[in-house]
Design a binder for these strands. Structure first.
Lengths: 200, 200
DNA sequence: GTCTATACCGGGATAGAC
DNA sequence: GTCTATCCCGGTATAGAC
């Protein structure tokens, strides 16, 4: 040992780079998601940044991971109600609607990561599974309080996530789209079905 | 004048190239969506293909436009019922679930075309508006028969389109996903709400 | 282990030669 | 109008300073 200091420094550097990248992309848009620009903003050279993350793709994957961590505060709660979930979810989407750069980064990486060989492939697979499971659990619990069997929680979770991604893509194409309103409508529809009379 | 024959020939060539491209992508996947491969399959040189379409992006945009034409037979009918729409819609998605190459092309272009300067930007803007309007009209008509005011048709159309795009993206990431089942569930939920008691 | 300098590669834009 | 030369830029690989 005696290397402890180095590890700590490296960790701090990585974190500092990621937070800088996050901010730069938020304020300057997706165009700022270049290694050069991020390095410049973080106060070191391009090579310096790459020393910590190896490739651009890995760096950006970590940026997304950090963003998720910061966003997650809301719907990580396993005891949340459906209303809590909706509120937390809409809050995140509403915030996203002000940072096209980050949404674009997320969407582009989502598509790239479709390739099983892409460094972010596993990240997205896990991410979708994790968030989906948490949503499904909340829906499941909601059903306990009323009546079961009407709708499969997994299907609701999948639809909610897919609709969100699709809306973000569409919003990038046409910023006039009101993502929050559309998702609020979807929640309202879910509510109507989940709270409706039990299926026979 | 005197060039009439050329125009006709050029039109025929364009069409033949597009149909070849469609088939090649369907059978060989997204990797086959290269100008070289398409040219080869269509029996002319790369330059020959580009002579008719200028850039790869414009060529691929036209491929998507042709695919839409071929798919549209189903839900172009302005007198269709909600059930008809659902059947036609699910048929298209079900077919897509067998041709990852075309879905990948569509998804990738969707994201690229997000840029207002992209040659396919207007195409996608118009496409989404057109299909959305048609869906909304069908929903609207469905509401006439029962009760209005419960849900805005435009919101339903937007959600359906967004969910479809999101599901396709997710399916590319994880082919285990059953897109058709998920969309069938969404239709079922829409039905439940639209057929429910009028809102007060 | 952290970081810089430099050079390389590929794509896209630009400009000038023909 | 085309073809080529050149340059810039972003990402990557290597050598070496500290």
């Amino acid at each position: 040992m005696g290397k402890r200091g180095s590890y700590a420094k490296s960790e701090a550097r990585r974190d500092s780079i990621l937070r800088t990248a996050l901010e730069v992309i938020d304020t300057e848009g997706y165009a700022a998601a270049s290694v050069t620009r991020i390095a410049e903003a973080a106060g070191l050279s391009k090579t310096g940044v790459l020393h910590h993350f190896e490739t651009k793709e890995k760096l950006l994957t970590e940026v997304l991971r950090l963003r998720d961590e910061l966003d997650e505060s809301g719907f990580a709660d396993p005891t949340a109600s459906l209303g809590d979930l909706e509120a937390a979810y809409l809050k995140v989407v509403e915030r996203n609607a002000r940072i096209p750069g980050m949404v674009e980064l997320f969407t582009r990486l989502s598509v790239e990561a479709t390739d099983p060989d892409h460094p972010a492939h596993d990240f997205f697979l896990r991410r979708e599974a994790d968030i989906g499971r948490r949503i499904a659990e909340t829906v499941e619990r909601h059903l306990d309080e009323r009546h079961r069997g009407a709708v499969e929680p997994d299907a609701v979770a999948l639809l909610l996530l897919a609709a969100t991604d699709g809306l973000q893509m569409r919003w990038l194409l046409d910023p006039e789209i009101d993502m929050t309103a559309a998702l609020a409508t979807l929640f309202r529809i879910f509510d109507a079905v989940l709270d409706g009379p039990p299926q026979d």
